[in-house]
Design a protein around this nucleic acid. Structure first.
Length: 284
DNA sequence: CTCCAGGCGCCTT
DNA sequence: AAGGCGCATGGA
């Protein structure tokens, strides 16, 4: 089988933290290598200092797809420079310098986060894996592997039954995923076109889809559509904001949404990811 | 066993 | 507008 290797220069980049930070759900660590699927390619990644070594099962000459996904060219120092100068954020960044945002494919990102509600990250990974095995297409994997699959298209999921989706253990999320897949497949929403809209308009579009509320819309916008200012507030970020910024005040979710929209600046999504990682790993 | 997990939609106040 | 609750499933 024709394989291909490539090296990406990535300064100030923590690959492990980035792939394991709950923004993408198809990465596994084994023998020191991160294995995952991007589009129709099976990839293995390993970091040494400021180099990321990549290997695919297919032959490959043009690696722009991987650079697009990993975004190694983002100047992290310049992003952090835009953060507000407050103690909680300094501490969160200090705890995990090099954590990055990925740029994922919008449909896969949206569908994955529809499956994420009230699920732990390990379970989301399991559901996504089952969904890919059952509805994705086989792709070339490493020799001796157990079989790799692409993430299923909206059209393929739209053609499935709710019962078939429930067999992937997604429970009450099945009708949401099915309904949204149908809307996407029939052209009821242009996911790629969202990037050209203002944040609020793009969010409103997404929130018309079944199973997509404010939080999941913001995740799709941040992780899949390149809206750096999107700031998803889940139970963990809610906890971080209350604990670190509103310790002596009571603050409901609406209040915190308004606070986040103005406090964290043009790259608020990065701040959100640092706070998410910090509250999950450091405090418990 | 109970509690809770990167929520949403619907039904009450 | 704001708050409560059910929804499937499985870790902890």
């Amino acid at each position: 089988m024709a394989t291909a290797e490539h090296v990406i220069v990535a300064e100030d980049y923590d690959l492990a933290a980035t792939l394991d930070s709950g923004q993408a759900f198809r990465w596994r660590l084994g023998n020191g290598l991160w294995s995952g699927v991007i589009g129709r390619r099976c990839v293995r990644l390993r970091q040494e200092g400021s180099s990321i070594f990549a290997e695919t099962a297919n032959s490959c000459e043009d690696w722009r797809w991987l650079e697009e996904y990993l975004q190694p060219g983002t100047d992290l120092a310049a992003v952090l420079e835009t953060f507000p100068d407050d103690p909680p954020l300094h501490e969160a960044v200090r705890a995990c310098r090099g954590l990055r945002l990925l740029r994922q494919e919008p449909w896969e990102c949206l569908a994955s986060f529809i499956l994420s509600s009230t699920k732990q990250i390990v379970q989301i990974r399991q559901i996504v894996a089952r969904l890919c095995e059952r509805f994705g297409e086989p792709i070339d994997g490493p020799p001796g592997g157990t079989g790799e699959f692409s993430f299923p298209t909206a059209a393929r999921i739209a053609a499935a039954s709710e019962a078939e989706l429930r067999d992937c253990k997604m429970g009450f999320r099945a009708p949401y995923l099915l309904g949204t897949a149908r809307r996407v497949a029939e052209g009821g929403i242009d996911l790629a076109g969202l990037r050209g809209l203002p944040l609020e308009a793009a969010r409103e579009e997404l929130m018309r889809l079944p199973g997509v509320g404010r939080k999941i819309a913001d995740c799709a916008l941040l992780f899949g559509c390149g809206f750096d200012e999107a700031f998803p507030i889940d139970v963990w970020v809610l906890k971080a904001l209350r604990q670190l910024y509103f310790a002596k005040r009571r603050a409901d979710k609406k209040r915190l949404e308004r606070f986040a929209a103005t406090h964290f600046g043009p790259h608020a999504g990065y701040a959100q990811q640092y706070l998410f990682h910090y509250i999950r790993t450091k405090i418990r």
